[in-house]
Amino acid sequence: MTRPDEQAETLPWAGAPVASQEQFLSPEADHPNQGKPAQGKGKLFVAVALIVAAASLTWLVVGGVEQNLVYYLTPSELTAKGDDAIGANVRLGGMVAKDSIRWRPEETELKFKVKDHGAEIEVHASSIPPEMFREGIGVIVEGSIGSDGIFQTRRLMVRHSNEYKAPGDQETVDLDYMSQTLEDNGT
């Protein structure tokens, strides 16, 4: 009788015996514990896992990607919408304008301006800003603009650039990495 490992295939980097290719591919060849199809509870578990995976994928694609193809509007785009934009829930993204930050920690009240090349919008927030928040950094705020032209936000996010510098390095100043569009993304 030939023992199976005498005709076994080996890994390029290994010497340990394994199943021969014929036995590997034959439908009967299966590990008594590992290879058999999932049964009963096991099969149900796998089915549930697959359904959950499929459902969350659909949710991500439909709910996430579709809404987020344009993740945020620039101040120019929001201004151009005029009265249509009033009250609508949007994300606004731009650079924090120089000398515009007014932070009153006692009242947790933060006022600043978000700008791009063409427009500037006053933003009011009532939460503690992330520690990265400063003049000239990119921010994304969620909320809506009022008829007074002031954008009220409940969620302030910082979007920093792709610069990771050490003390003493030259840093790029006055970057505007927030108003990139599909056309000029090569920069």
Partner: peptide, 8 residues
């Protein structure tokens, strides 16, 4: 200072 953008 909080709005100087340096994480402590």
């Amino acid at each position: 200072f909080h709005t100087c953008g340096q994480i402590q």
